[in-house]
Design a protein around this nucleic acid. Structure first.
Length: 694
DNA sequence: GGGCATGGTAAAC
DNA sequence: TTCCAGTTTACCATGCCC
């Protein structure tokens, strides 16, 4: 009896695209006249056979299986069971009904094709032309001209272009959208100072008070508010839904899109009539999969049918899910202004062309750790649970998490945990890596500028220096007086984004080691803080810690000029990675201490050893291609691992020399000007004898 | 059995 | 030429530890 429609279409082999359920199944405003069959066929043709497509099929099969299970469970329900669930459902319905509040007037405001509209405002030549905001891999939104071709948000750009060859792509510019979003919010505030911003382009307003004060209706307020937004933004339009609760208001704002509004009166009859024929997919929170499950497992397509099948809902779903579905059936939604919740997690992820190259993957991981750390510092957050997200070449998504005893936020700490998680997944071919930090510290760490929170290494590794250097020119002047502290010593940032420190030349590995020691008292639970992530480097750390004080002075004299200057290009796979900010190398070798090595010697040395970063072996070309850019500083003794493997530590270091600061430093130290003067920021790189296995 | 950690998934914009 | 994003939240299942 259930889901007969599904079996019909799946048997149709002449039009396979009809069974390809894309995410674009929810009708969107502005897509009324679209030749759906044609769009579906093109999307199918562009997708079939791809890894993405195969993964969609895999997911689809999984959902079908789930649906089959649910149907089997339904079939097994005896009359007595059904009677029981009937009672359960009736009880919930009564309880929900008791909470119904028709006294509030909520307005949901939704900007029309917001990003696209903003772009058109700043470039009027786009007006009337099909345009999408985003790129070839994904578009964020499309204007109404483009929607007529079937182009829509969350569609990959290359498919959109196929649907509409003359489609203009405009890159996203969040600064711009935030600016206009703030303008709209200024208007919202006038009607509800506690309005709830759902996103940059959406907000919920409780206008009950304004209506009472002014003796007017929600309809009037909505009209006035929309006009206000139009004026304030210089021409952006929005749509509004007016209803007794947020759930309904959201549905209503979509009805007369664009530049329109829909009012649902505050009486039960009107509300129930409205909801009864409404497809469940229109409800916020019911997406493609839930729609599919409700339809094919229970034969539910409209909200009315949820109530009709309420005993099955209670039999199949968890209490909270059943509560939600039944409240949808009753058109009951939030009526009080929800409390602003603090952020629960923060994440960064990046997609790249799929690769199994472990060196590349670790470079990406380091980049993401840097970005995450930067964001954490900006927000003044520290957290305990780090989650690594991976998307394999076949689009399978995996997450791996660790929860540590201490709160973390530095790139080093993040990398320490993240590289361990990633290492456990190898070998694997990936197209995305992401990192998320959650379980935040109750007390926020200080403001972003809090000197104790940002080490020099953090700064360099975070890429801030690079971004300031290459990107935001306007900020350069302002940055000239920036400074931060590291280990109690002042570090100056120069105009060009470089920085120097008077005497800190410690390896971040040392910091790791030290913090591990600090933490060792409290080490327990499921994450072992003291465990070495960077294998084989710990011995060197211990030695370096001892030798640190005396070496720091030496390093100052042995630092080298920038090695990766203009004209130097990294192999494509390392492009954009943190490694392109590495400008010199300090290597440690044998019994020799603090002496230079010729390039010839270095080559011989490199040929004899494998190079690894974060414990991952680098391709031979990585070192060879750079050898002429290297200059070395020998500082340490040959180490011996427990396994007996000889290894030598080679620390890549970033050099930063703000001119004016160097001058003052020279004066202070009474040194002669030296072209080799500078600051090294180390990254853990070490070499293991090539005839040994890692 | 509650609380916590982990992993997978859905959903929204 | 390019070939399916990034960020956040919530829920559910499961396993483990008192």
């Amino acid at each position: 009896m259930l889901a007969m429609a599904n079996t019909e279409s799946s048997g149709d082999t002449a039009r396979p695209w009809q069974c390809y359920n894309t995410a674009y199944t929810n009708a969107k405003a502005g897509m009324e006249g679209v030749d759906k069959e044609k769009v579906q066929r093109i999307v199918y043709e562009m997708s079939k056979g791809s890894q993405y497509f195969k993964n969609e099929e895999r997911k689809e099969a999984f959902i079908r299986e789930k649906i089959e299970n649910m149907r089997a469970r339904c079939a097994k329900l005896k009359p007595a069971d059904l009677a029981h669930y009937r009672t359960v459902a009736d009880k919930i319905i009564l309880e929900l009904e008791a909470t119904r509040d028709l006294s509030r007037i909520w307005v949901h405001v939704d900007m029309d094709a917001f990003y696209a509209a903003v772009e058109t405002l700043s470039d009027p030549s786009l007006k009337g032309k099909p345009m999408a905001v985003g790129g070839m891999s994904m578009i964020s939104t499309a204007n109404y001209e483009a929607r007529r071709f079937g182009v829509r948000a969350a569609m990959p750009g290359f498919i959109a272009r196929k649907l509409c060859p003359e489609l203009i792509f405009v890159p996203t510019d969040f600064k711009k959208y935030t600016y206009y979003s703030d303008l709209t919010r200024k208007v919202f505030e006038k009607y509800d100072p506690n309005f709830v911003a759902a996103s940059l382009d959406e907000a919920y307003l409780d206008v009950t008070e304004v209506c009472e004060e002014r003796g007017t209706t929600g309809e009037e307020i909505a009209r006035e508010l929309r006009a206000g937004v139009h004026d304030e933004t210089g021409g952006l339009t929005c749509s509004a839904g007016v209803a007794p609760n947020r759930l309904l208001a959201k549905v209503c704002s979509d009805i007369n899109k664009p530049n329109g509004q829909f009012i649902l009166p505050n009486n039960r009859m009107a509300v129930m009539t409205f909801i009864s024929s409404l497809p469940v997919r229109k409800i916020g929170g019911i997406g493609k999969v839930t729609e599919h499950i409700l339809r094919d497992a229970l034969g539910i397509s409209t909200c009315e049918e949820i109530l009709q099948k309420s005993s099955y809902i209670c039999a199949l779903f968890s209490h909270s899910s059943a509560d939600f579905f039944l409240s949808v059936g009753l058109a009951i939604g939030g009526t009080n202004t929800p409390q602003v919740r603090s952020r629960r997690s923060i994440s960064n992820e990046r997609t790249f062309s799929a690769t199994g190259d472990e060196a590349f993957l670790f470079c990406k991981l380091a980049d993401i750790a840097e970005m995450l750390s930067t964001d954490l510092q900006k927000e003044g957050l520290r957290g305990r649970t780090l989650t690594l997200k991976l998307k394999t070449a076949s689009f399978e998504v995996r997450t791996r998490a660790v929860t540590s005893q201490k709160n973390i936020c530095s790139t080093e700490d993040i990398m320490k945990h993240a590289s361990k998680l990633l290492k456990a997944e190898l070998p694997v071919s990936l197209r995305l890596i992401g990192l998320r930090l959650s379980h935040f510290d109750e007390e926020k760490v200080g403001a972003p500028s809090d000197p104790t929170q940002k080490t020099l290494t953090d700064y360099m590794l975070s890429g801030d220096a690079l971004r300031k250097n290459m990107g935001d020119q306007s900020s350069l002047d302002l940055d000239s007086t920036d400074h931060c502290m590291m280990h109690g010593e002042e570090t100056y940032l120069s105009k060009d984004g470089h920085q120097t420190s008077s005497c800190d030349y410690r390896d971040p590995l040392d910091e790791n080691h030290l913090s591990n020691l600090d933490d060792s008292k409290s080490t327990s639970g499921n994450f072992e803080e003291k465990e070495e992530i960077y294998e084989s480097t710990s011995n060197a750390n211990a030695e370096k810690m001892n030798a640190n004080d005396s070496q720091n002075e030496d390093n100052v004299q042995d630092v080298v000029p920038p090695l990766l200057g203009p004209g130097y290009s990294f192999p494509a796979q390392f492009e954009g990675s943190s490694l392109d900010r590495v400008s010199s190398v300090t290597k440690t070798l044998g019994d020799v201490a603090s002496s230079s090595v010729s390039q010839k010697e270095f080559l011989l040395w490199v040929n004899d050893y494998k190079c690894s970063i974060c414990g991952i072996e680098m391709p031979p070309s990585f070192v060879e291609e750079r050898q002429e850019h290297f200059d070395f500083h020998l500082a340490e003794k040959l180490q011996k691992e427990e396994s007996g493997t000889d290894f030598k530590t080679c620390v890549l270091k970033k050099r930063n020399v703000p001119k004016d600061h160097i001058a003052s430093q020279r004066k202070h130290k009474k040194q002669k000007p030296s072209p080799k003067e500078g600051k090294h920021i180390p990254i853990d790189v070490f070499f293991v004898k090539s005839n040994q296995n890692f």
